[in-house]
C-alpha cells in the first residue's frame, strides 16, 4: 500500500514571514574543522533580472564527509556545532550567500565516492515546487569521476561547478532560463 504524497505549492512572495527565523548563512561557527569559504551567487530569471524573492537552502556533509543525520552509517567523526543546513533569502540583487566549509566526499551509487558537493533546494514565487541542484567545487579532480555529474551533458556540467573568485570565495549562480541555464534535477 502506498499513500500519495501531498501536492507541492509555491512559497509565494510572502515566504519571509514564515521562514526568515531560520535564516542560516553561516553554517560553520568558529572551531568547526575544514576549509572555510564564502559561497555567493545570484538567482536570475529568464529576462536576466534578479529574483529578489527566492529562498536558497543547502545541505552538506562536514569536512570528513559525514552527514549529521542518524541515517549516515559511515564511521566518520561528526563536527560539533555543524548541522550542515543553510538557508539564505535573496536580496534586491537576487543575491544569496553562505559561509561554510568544504564538505568531504560521501558515498554514491554502488559505494563509489562522489566528488565533494552541496545539495541545493531553491524556492520562489512562480515555482510550484522547489528546484533541486548541486554545487560542486572548482579544481577538484574527483569531479571527472563523479557519478551524478556523469549523468549531465558535458557542456552543461560547468553550471554545477562553482567558480573561484578569489582565495576563500566561490561564486555559484542560479540561472533559471536561457544561456547558461543551471542544471536542475528531478530529485
Amino acid at each position: 500500500m502506498s499513500l500519495q504524497a501531498t501536492t507541492s505549492q509555491t512559497v509565494g512572495p510572502y515566504l519571509h514571514i514564515g521562514l526568515s527565523w531560520l535564516i542560516t548563512e553561516n553554517l560553520a561557527p568558529k572551531g568547526v574543522p575544514g576549509e572555510r569559504m564564502l559561497i555567493r551567487g545570484r538567482v536570475l530569471d529568464g529576462d536576466g533580472r534578479p529574483v529578489n524573492d527566492a529562498l536558497v537552502e543547502i545541505w552538506q556533509a562536514n569536512a570528513a564527509g559525514k552527514y549529521a543525520h542518524p541515517r549516515d552509517p559511515q564511521a566518520k567523526p561528526l563536527a560539533e556545532g555543524f548541522r550542515g543546513f543553510g538557508r539564505s533569502a535573496t536580496n534586491q540583487d537576487g543575491a544569496f550567500r553562505f559561509r561554510t566549509i568544504k564538505p568531504g566526499p560521501v558515498p554514491g551509487p554502488g559505494g563509489k565516492l562522489q566528488a565533494p558537493h552541496i545539495a541545493v533546494n531553491v524556492f520562489m514565487r512562480g515555482q510550484l515546487k522547489q528546484l533541486v541542484s548541486r554545487i560542486y567545487f572548482p579544481g577538484e579532480a574527483a569531479n571527472a569521476k563523479d557519478p551524478v555529474l556523469a549523468l549531465v551533458a558535458a557542456d552543461r556540467r560547468p553550471t554545477l561547478v562553482a567558480k573561484a573568485v578569489k582565495p576563500g570565495m566561490l561564486e555559484w549562480n542560479v540561472i533559471l532560463q536561457g544561456k547558461g541555464e543551471t542544471v536542475f534535477f528531478d530529485c
Binding site: G126, V148, L176, D186
Partner: peptide, 12 residues
C-alpha cells in the same frame, strides 16, 4: 520566466 526550459536530470 522562472521555469527551467531544459529537461531535468533524474537524480539517483
Amino acid at each position: 520566466k522562472r521555469a527551467p526550459t531544459q529537461p531535468l536530470v533524474i537524480l539517483p
